[in-house]
Design a protein around this nucleic acid. Sequence first.
DNA 1: CGGCATCCGTGACGATACTG
DNA 2: CAGTATCGTCACGGATGCCG
Lengths: 208, 208
Amino acid sequence: MPPRRRYDQYCSVARALDLVGDRWTLLIVRELLAGARRYTDLHADLPGVSTDVLASRLRDMERDGLVTRRRLPPPGAVSVYEVTPRGRELLPVLQALGAWGEAALGERGPTDAVRAHWFALPLLRLLDGEGLVEVHLEEGLFHLYAGSAQGPVCGDGPAPVEPDARLVLDTATCTALSRGELALADAVRAGRVEVGGEGALAKALREL
Amino acid sequence: MPPRRRYDQYCSVARALDLVGDRWTLLIVRELLAGARRYTDLHADLPGVSTDVLASRLRDMERDGLVTRRRLPPPGAVSVYEVTPRGRELLPVLQALGAWGEAALGERGPTDAVRAHWFALPLLRLLDGEGLVEVHLEEGLFHLYAGSAQGPVCGDGPAPVEPDARLVLDTATCTALSRGELALADAVRAGRVEVGGEGALAKALREL
DNA sequence: CGGCATCCGTGACGATACTG
DNA sequence: CAGTATCGTCACGGATGCCG
């Protein structure tokens, strides 16, 4: 087997792309930043990826130290994939890409898939340092740990413990916030965001 | 022609990757951040890219508003490619990728190509706001505009006007600085960086 | 049923040759 | 100089099958 395709450039950007430049790789990281996932869950949340490509990417990423595979103790006996610290360091890359991609997001097309937690990364920048926030969208709810240095940065479903804030909004408001077109305070004042919870952020927002 | 391959996900990261996720695209942006380039120059500084792929990428990037093609006035009558403001906004993406890739850079392999200006982006973070800096490596020299909001962020060859600082160093020192393993001041004290020029940075470094 | 491996058709890629 | 044309190879996407 010939060595896998590389750029062969002594440049840190090219080296990074050697590791995460393949199709699907960064989106797999995006998924795993929401916590450990089984193979089947990954396949379900990455519509379009074929089974062999997903398996191949996970193998490459494990070899390259981006993800680990862990067997859950019985009962269950399923294995889950999770991101390593090294893989988690790709968060700034995903945030930069996401910030740049906001301008190209546009309206949701008829063939576009959506998952609620895909909105977590943009909000993470906005809410930096505000603690555990639970977010409710029409597409579902998720939670994010804004400002935590380790552990998962977000997760699907309700927050595991009482969150510092609870936000109810729609995707249009969500993308407007992410693009910086709308300030969170203004969105709350305009009634486009409902605020719950007892953390500092939640109280401050309700004061408006 | 069927619509080109997209992820079809309503997610800003996926949308960004639809536009810049193809092989070579981000490296073309890296090249053009060093200023306008002719087709042949791009081909020479991107070893491994085939002529048709390069032409195809440039066409896609022009259509997507990342680059523009400009015909130089005669004599010369050659056309050059340059990055648009929208394309220039990819700088944070390249910096994040570069910062992450530093850890994987390692030693220069026997098949690795090198260009001096590939070290500009990492140094740009380090020297942010210090003005026009000319950098001398064994591989060549380049200059960078640290902290300018527009215009090219770097360029090959000597600075077009008298730079605020002139730094002479080797690639090992350069990567150590980029990784944050070495502070610029310490590198100067250790004699690993020679400092010239009359700007604030240059004078401060010589004070040590 | 979850976690792949295999097969196959299509498109993307890389090298070379050629042209306005 | 700046690409287009051609072609062999490989990566990708979709479907199906195997095996615990």
